[in-house]
Amino acid sequence: MEHDNDLNNLLKNRFAPQVPKDLAERIIFQAVSNLPQPARNFWNELSSMFTLPHPSYVMAVAIVIGLVVGLQAGDGLAMLGQDWSSFLDINEGGWL
């Protein structure tokens, strides 16, 4: 028993290592650096290159464009009517 006590007392004097001051921070940083990235699917990647707008957006834009064109075309139709009447008058007393 006395020998055990002597041995225990001796072992208690074992060298105690000094912990590197930045060890914890290095571990935490490494964990952040290794955060898992979301899985990338080939088909998802491919479809993202050809992204189409939602149909409702397409309809809305088409309606707006149609209205704009339609309002502008109103003047054109009147001009077309004038062209017709002049076209009909073209050969009156003409070279025939």
């Binding site: 074992r14 105690a16 290592p17 912990v19 590197p20 060890l23 914890a24 571990i27 935490i28 964990a31 952040v32 955060l35």
Partner: peptide, 26 residues
């Protein structure tokens, strides 16, 4: 990650000492 950070900071010193005693090398 916050929980991981707390756990690491709490136990690094203790487990470093253990690892040092096991391996004998800093």
């Amino acid at each position: 990650h916050q929980a991981f950070s707390i756990l690491v900071r709490r136990h690094t010193d203790r487990f470093y000492a253990t690892a040092f005693r096991l391996s004998g090398n800093a």
